[in-house]
């Protein structure tokens, strides 16, 4: 029986390559097999997750020529960097999308929600963060995540915002005088430290903010 099984398995490997036709996607086993092959490769979780499209050679001229507002983002742990574009507005919240289907929602520069990252922020109330960015202080923050069973999981964090220094920040030939604000949050299972480079009129020109345990930090620059 051993001989038979060797031949069966080797044939299986060969046959897997040959799936075709519009209905083949319905064959779950083929998809699963491909998934296994992919997951066997090193650093599989980063490879399987979509990343922000690689950034073009950016210049100030290119930025000025665009009609939509843009942010340069990087998902730091995935070493992925790219551009995201303003696609929607709902009150103070602005939705920014990447061409490959990730989205980030910011309210006055503070991250409110993400979609497509695998471990997304589903929604959060950032009014206390917005107030603290002006004056510092301590406050509670609530973030909604989606758990493995598809249920909303609310996490509450005890946070503190501090003004740490002023810094001259240059983004593609333009320099802004910014106040660097650091936000330290402690929750039951996770703690994180966000950093905001706030301009004189309150604009957040650059920031590094925590998304979730599965994704880590996102950094962005307003272009």
């Amino acid at each position: 029986m051993n001989t038979t099984w060797t031949s069966v398995l080797s044939t299986a490997t060969l046959v897997v390559v040959s799936a075709c036709g519009p209905l083949n996607t319905k064959n779950a086993s083929v998809g699963v097999f491909r998934g296994v092959v992919q997951s066997a490769m090193p650093d599989d979780s980063a490879a399987a997750a979509p990343s922000v499209e690689a950034a073009q050679a950016l210049t100030r001229d290119y930025i000025e020529a665009q009609e939509t507002n843009m942010l340069r983002v990087s998902i730091i742990d995935r070493e992925a960097t790219g551009l995201i574009f303003e696609v929607g507005r709902n009150g103070d919240k602005v939705t920014w999308n990447s061409p490959d289907g990730l989205s980030f929602v910011l309210e006055a520069g503070v991250l409110v929600a993400t979609r497509g990252l695998g471990d997304d922020v589903m929604g959060s109330d950032v009014s206390s963060v917005k107030a603290a960015l002006r004056s510092g202080g301590s406050y509670l923050r609530t973030i909604d995540f989606l758990d493995g069973l598809g249920q909303i999981e609310r996490s509450v964090y005890q946070c503190r915002m501090d003004n740490v220094r002023t810094e001259a920040l240059t983004i593609f030939e333009r320099t802004y005088t910014t106040t660097v604000m650091e936000e330290l949050c402690t929750g039951e299972t996770h703690s994180f430290k966000n950093t905001y480079w706030r301009g004189g009129n309150g604009t957040i020109w650059q920031s590094r903010q925590w998304i979730s345990a599965g994704v880590g930090y996102v950094g962005y620059q307003k272009l």
């Binding site: 979780s45 399987a48 997750a49 979509p50 696609v87 929607g88 507005r89 709902n90 009150g91 939705t95 999308n97 490959d100 289907g101 990730l102 989205s103 979609r115 497509g116 990252l117 695998g118 471990d119 997304d120 589903m122 995540f145 989606l146 758990d147 493995g148 069973l149 599965g214």
Partner: peptide
């Protein structure tokens, strides 16, 4: 079974809500 690798999934982002007031 309760802990998938990607709890919220890698589905692409949904279309944002079109707000009539905007």
């Amino acid at each position: 079974p309760t802990t998938p690798n990607f709890p919220s999934g890698l589905d692409t982002s949904p279309m944002p809500v079109g707000v009539r007031a905007e």
